[in-house]
Computed example of a mutant assay.
Amino acid sequence: MNSLVLIRTHFEEKQTLGQLFVLNDQADELFSCFTLELPWKDNEQFVSCIPAGRYKVVPRNSEKYGDHLHILGVPDRSLILIHEANFYFELLGCICIGRKQLDINGDSLKDVTSSVATKNKLLSFITQPTEISIS
């Protein structure tokens, strides 16, 4: 079973940047991409990224995001998703992923690119419940 590892690399006032890795049972890297989250604000709903830790992840489908991943068991939080988005201001506590980190909109903050294609590639590796480790 493949698993996910998210390593947060930059904590900024408005956002948190990182890298997400898909690992197989032998801890070989199968896929990686960049992440964008809200900043750490004590796990406050809708304005903070989630706490570091280990969580269950399940594939999910919704009308708004189509196929995506749902992170379960986050203390005091619900509906934490890994879905497409490009900018921190599109997030309410979820994680968005992309191929690159670039300043797309000229606000001097890094955004993520190709989020839909990156999400679809990630979903090809995560087809059943698994775990994510966030550090």
Score class of each variant (00 low, 15 high):
V47R: 07
A117P: 00
F11Y: 15
P39I: 00
M1Q: 07
I95C: 04
L6A: 06
F46W: 09
D103A: 10
T16Q: 13
N120I: 00
D28A: 11
R77K: 08
I134D: 11
R99P: 00
N43I: 01
L36W: 01
D76S: 10
V116L: 14
S78V: 04
L20M: 10
V58M: 06
L123A: 09
D67M: 05
I95P: 01
C94K: 09
A85G: 11
A27G: 10
S124V: 00
T118Y: 01
L79T: 06
I80W: 03
F87P: 01
F87S: 12
D25C: 09
V22R: 10
N61H: 13
L109Q: 15
K41E: 13
S133D: 12
L38Y: 08
F21D: 02
S133P: 01
N105F: 05
L72N: 10
N61K: 14
C94E: 06
V5T: 10
E29C: 15
L81R: 07
K119M: 14
L30S: 12
L122T: 08
A85L: 05
I82M: 12
C96F: 04
G18R: 06
N43V: 02
L92C: 10
T35G: 04
F125M: 08
A117C: 03
D25M: 06
T16R: 09
S48F: 05
Q19D: 01
P59L: 03
K100F: 03
Q26C: 12
G66K: 12
S114Y: 13
T113P: 00
P129A: 04
V5P: 01
Q128T: 09
I126M: 12
E12A: 13
R60M: 11
I104T: 05
A85K: 00
E84D: 08
P59N: 10
I95Q: 02
E84S: 14
T127R: 15
I95R: 02
F11T: 08
I71E: 04
R54I: 14
T35R: 04
I50G: 08
A85T: 02
S48G: 07
C49V: 01
D107N: 14
